[in-house]
């Protein structure tokens, strides 16, 4: 059960139950839809960007606890950040959830994202944790086609 608790930390379960920024935004400057055809997860990310800064960010959709919590945490930490910072955090997060399990990861560097450190022990769940972030990048690039994790 230890590894399971690493994956399903209380913070993740809380975000799943009461997700933050869970609403459809009126007049977003950027948006994109992401889809994981294997498990049917679907997420939509909305952004308001002004002068390269994320003024507001929200999401909607349905998915497992990991994907919902990932969206909730992502939108929480990105509000007020610059696009460059968002892209930097994307890279950092990707490393956190995909790093080899034998590699030492200093979770202190990751702030609120650290709760996702357990994902790398569950390779089948990496896509759940990554979908909203990939969709975010898609939205920032203003691409209109749907993102899939396949």
């Amino acid at each position: 059960m230890d590894e399971l608790r690493d994956l399903y930390q209380e913070v993740i379960l809380d975000h799943n139950k009461n997700p933050k920024n869970y609403f459809q935004m009126d007049e977003p400057t950027h948006s994109a839809e992401g889809h994981n055809p294997l498990c049917g997860d679907q997420v939509e990310i909305f952004l308001k960007v002004e002068n390269d800064k994320i003024i507001d960010i929200s999401f909607q959709g349905h998915g497992c606890a990991i994907s919902k919590a990932a969206s909730s945490v992502m939108t929480s930490i990105l509000k007020g950040k610059s696009i460059a910072e968002a892209k930097y955090l994307f890279e950092k997060y990707q490393h956190l959830v995909t790093a080899d399990i034998n590699e030492a990861v200093n979770v202190d560097e990751y702030g609120h994202l650290a709760v996702f450190a357990g994902v790398r022990e569950f390779p089948m769940r990496v896509k759940c944790a990554s979908l909203s972030w990939h969709t975010l990048l898609q939205a920032l690039e203003n691409k209109t086609e749907m993102v899939t994790t396949e």
């Binding site: 059960m1 590894e3 399971l4 994956l7 399903y8 294997l38 498990c39 049917g40 997860d41 349905h62 998915g63 497992c64 606890a65 990991i66 919902k68 569950f122 089948m124 769940r125 759940c128």
Partner: peptide, 21 residues
């Protein structure tokens, strides 16, 4: 509880089921 989460937890109990569409 989303089926995907059920599948992961059951797997850790040794139980193999299919989750998804």
């Amino acid at each position: 509880v989303h089926p995907h989460d059920i599948g992961t937890i059951l797997d850790r109990e040794g139980v193999a089921v299919r989750t998804g569409h």
